Amino acid sequence: MSNHLTLSVEQSPVMNTYTRFPVTMVKGKGSFIWDEKEDKYLDFTSGIATCNLGHVPGYVHDKVQEQLSLLWHCSNLYHIPSQEKLAKLLIYNSFGDQVFFCNSGTEANEALIKLARKHAEMRGKDSRKIITFKHSFHGRTLAALSATGQEKLQQGFAPLVEGFQHLEFNSFEDLKVLETIEACGVLLELVQGEGGVIPANKEWVLKLAEICKQNDLLLMIDEIQTGMGRTGSLFAYQQYGIIPDIVSLAKGLGSGFPIGALIASNEVAQAFNPGSHGSTFGGNPLATSAGLATVQYIVENQIAQDAQKLGSYLVEKLEELQKDYPQIKEVRGLGLLVGVVFEGSALDVVKKLLAEKVLTLTAGEHVLRILPPLNASKDEVDLFVKTLENVLSGE
């Protein structure tokens, strides 16, 4: 018999893969979330850039409710209407021609890696190597982890998947290496979220795209955290003047429902054929109904443009705060993906804000990561900034 009944009172039956705060959340609406004691918190994490329309957005809720009464899941051996509609909507609003659906960001990047290598084989290229960048984050599965440019996350999981090389982010010098290296593609985030909320330099990105074109390298953008309006445009690449070959999506795509996606050009997408990749749950009716409603609402209500304006307002307020509090070293980001660099521990600031019923994140040791819902109000931003000021002043 299993010894599952021998757990101590203190030991959770859930594996210890997260350092959890001592709060249990049970309900959310808009920019707020409530714990089991009915205490109300301002949530400026958005489920790590997932609930981009806030918690339980009405339009998405209604569409999911409709689908719940019809069909939750069926095999991808059959056509799924909401999947087809969501794919068309993503294509219409992007560079792409075809979409593959999965369940998460790391799965989207696994599909991206496989597609890039399959495309290289189709083109007769000898190299399957993919270039990524230091401090990047591309997921937790073994290939996505191997693509990630953070050794601390890779410790204990050797041997890693071969075929990845990490260059310095925003380094023009390292782009010279790219001109001579044998590879099939380049994968990058346009804002390194987990790596410290570091935006890519636009001139550097344009040079990178030029080198990719000249050297027959796929240009692949990880938009898992930056996509779905988070940076002030539906996709971050649209602000950089580039046209990628592949983009990976997840997080904000489904308003909290597990869904990921890969968008590719026809020329690249044709490398996949029946049997080369798949997903049991990917693109199921429930997830794609949530995704369809989410993207429709973002596009039709110009949520990305609103996020750009609100992001500028938030940064302006934080820079004003910086003048009075020298422990703030820098404010950076794009749209509503904002980082505040502190001289000391960002986690200490997160804990103090939590005590004041405001939720935030870290991005490394010194960076406070701020991810409001894209449709948050100025009053909610003001509340956040005022609470942060109180925390910094010791009130």
Results as ranks from 00 to 15, higher is better:
Met1Trp: 03
Lys317Gln: 15
Asp97Glu: 14
Gly339Ser: 03
Phe342Gly: 03
Leu160Cys: 01
Leu145Cys: 03
His166Val: 13
Leu292Tyr: 15
Phe342Pro: 04
Thr132Asp: 01
Lys134Tyr: 11
Phe235Met: 14
Asp306Val: 12
Glu210Ser: 15
Leu359Trp: 04
Ser2Trp: 04
Ala108Tyr: 03
Ala376Gly: 10
Lys63Arg: 15
Val331Glu: 05
Leu71Asn: 09
Leu70Asp: 08
Pro13Arg: 08
Gln192Arg: 04
Lys202Arg: 15
Lys27Gly: 02
Phe44Val: 02
Leu187Trp: 11
Ala269Asp: 07
Arg20Met: 06
His135Ser: 14
Asn201Tyr: 01
Tyr240Leu: 01
Lys351Trp: 00
Ser248Gly: 15
Gly30Met: 01
Pro244Cys: 08
Leu219Glu: 09
Thr141Ala: 06
Gly278Glu: 13
His61Phe: 13
Glu162Leu: 05
Val391His: 01
Leu262Gly: 06
Thr294Trp: 13
Ser75Tyr: 09
Gly195Cys: 11
Asn170Tyr: 11
Met15Cys: 00
Ser104Ile: 04
Pro81Glu: 07
Lys85His: 14
Val391Gln: 01
Pro274Glu: 12
Ser248Ile: 08
Ile242Leu: 07
Lys88Trp: 04
Gly156Val: 13
Ile263Arg: 04
Cys51Met: 14
Leu142Gln: 08
Lys213Ala: 14
Asp348Gln: 06
Lys27Ile: 03
Pro57Ser: 09
Asn284Met: 15
Lys29Ser: 12
Thr24Arg: 10
Ser393Phe: 03
Phe101Arg: 04
Leu42Ile: 04
Ser2Glu: 13
Val349Lys: 02
Gln296Met: 10
Leu187Glu: 09
Arg128Glu: 07
Thr141Ile: 03
Ala261His: 12
Glu395His: 08
Lys309Pro: 00
Ala346Thr: 03
Leu175Asn: 09
Phe44Cys: 07
Leu354Cys: 03
His73Cys: 01
Cys102Ala: 02
Val191Thr: 14
Ser69Cys: 05
Glu168Pro: 00
Leu347Trp: 00
Pro244Tyr: 08
Met15Gln: 09
Leu115Ser: 06
Met25Tyr: 08
Ala87Gln: 08
Glu162Ser: 14
His135Tyr: 04
Glu380Thr: 06
Phe272Ile: 04
Val191Ser: 07
Leu68Tyr: 11
Ala87Phe: 05
Asn375Tyr: 05
Gln165Gly: 04
Ala147His: 07
Lys251Asp: 14
Asp245Pro: 06
Leu175Arg: 06
Ile131Gln: 09
Gln225Lys: 11
Leu310Gly: 02
Gln327Gly: 01
Tyr59Pro: 07
Val26Ile: 15
Ser312His: 12
Pro244Asn: 12
Leu71Ala: 03
Gly311Asn: 12
Ile298Cys: 09
Ala304Val: 03
Leu392Tyr: 06
Asp222Gly: 05
Asn375Lys: 10
Leu160Gln: 07
Pro81Met: 03
His79Gln: 10
Glu365Thr: 07
Gln67His: 00
Gly260Gln: 10
Pro13Gln: 03
Asn284Gln: 13
Ile263Leu: 15
Tyr78Trp: 06
Gln214Gly: 09
Lys378Tyr: 11
His55Pro: 02
Ala346Trp: 08
Lys329Gly: 00
Val338Trp: 00
Asp382Trp: 10
His166Leu: 01
Val315Phe: 06
Val299Gly: 10
Lys329His: 10
Arg230Pro: 05
Glu110Pro: 00
